[in-house]
Design a protein around this nucleic acid. Structure first.
Length: 274
DNA sequence: CTTGTGTCCTGTAGGC
DNA sequence: TGCCTACAGGACACAA
């Protein structure tokens, strides 16, 4: 499940290889992989453009092309992006591939929910409105106490749901929301308006710490995520609750519990988190 | 506007 | 062994 740290890791690794490369060919293997525009226009817009730089916004990976076009990937649940030698063959779950000057670029997505988009300069299609309504990223300096406090203080939704809300915490997903709540000693079902100022500040710190550390360790490899070279990330060694249901809490030994919040499985320690 | 629920999609794990 | 169901996950549509 690629969240901010995983996408950032992919961005860094990809940037070293494909910055400056030209897109010579593009082969969508599944019609629904292209989110915008239609298949024909997508291919026309991308062909023969050069990759100027690679950026990231929340969980969106953005290749900035010549003419200020943007080639945007969203990996959703199980997407991965790889470079391969030009001689390589497409893989089982390759949904779209690009031939560059020196590499093939594969977008693999077993669940087929990931999408790729290409935008002309200043284009903001409705289908990508998630990208244009993002809040601040918790690792940014704009994501400070007053921003966070104001975003949650009058809300009665469970705090976990607000951490997953991309309009508030851009880039946070299921792994890091559970981990941050653990480190802040807050139960995920707590109604946001019941979180005290002190706890808000603990949660803010925990979010920043967990995400920065996960970036440093090249993300968390559980399930489908691997890096662009096929190596695993390393943050899974530092998980306290995610993926540890029924195991003893690393702090107090209590059995880690799992529950559902808004259809999302959620792990927490009933003793460490209040 | 807010909140909660269902849907998309498909491989895999678990039950029988 | 093999079939069936539930589940995982992020984003979004939709209802109340």
């Amino acid at each position: 499940m690629p969240e901010l740290p995983e996408v950032e890791t992919i961005r860094r690794e990809l940037a070293l290889k494909i910055t400056g490369q030209r897109i010579l060919q593009c082969i969508p293997q599944r019609k629904d992989i292209i989110g915008y525009p239609g298949r024909q226009r997508f291919i026309e817009n991308v062909l023969n453009e050069k990759i100027i730089r690679i950026t990231r916004r929340a969980k969106y990976l953005i290749l900035v092309l010549t003419h200020k076009k943007q080639l945007i990937f969203h990996l959703r649940l199980s997407g991965s992006i790889y470079t391969r030698p030009l001689s390589a063959h497409r893989e089982r779950f390759t949904r779209i591939s690009f031939t560059l000057d020196d590499y093939l670029l594969f977008f693999n997505e077993p669940r087929a929910l990931g999408r790729v988009y290409v935008l002309q300069k200043n284009e903001k299609p409705d289908i990508l409105k998630g990208l244009f309504t993002l809040g601040y990223e918790p690792i940014s300096h704009e994501f400070d106490y007053s921003y966070f406090r104001n975003s949650i203080k009058d809300r009665k939704a469970p705090i976990k749901s607000l951490l997953l809300d991309q309009r508030i915490c851009a880039g946070v997903g299921n792994i890091y929301s559970d981990e941050a709540l653990f480190h802040a000693h807050i139960r995920p079902k707590r109604r946001a308006f019941r979180i005290t100022r002190t706890e808000t500040s603990q949660l803010l710190t925990a979010l920043k710490k967990v995400l920065n550390k996960a970036v440093k360790y090249a993300g968390t490899s559980v399930g489908d995520y691997t890096r662009t070279d096929g190596q695993d990330g390393n943050f899974q060694k530092f998980l306290y609750v995610y993926g540890r249901e029924f195991e003893p809490c690393r702090i107090c030994g209590e059995k880690v519990k799992v529950t559902k919040i808004g259809n999302r499985s959620t792990r927490y320690c009933p003793k460490c988190q209040v």
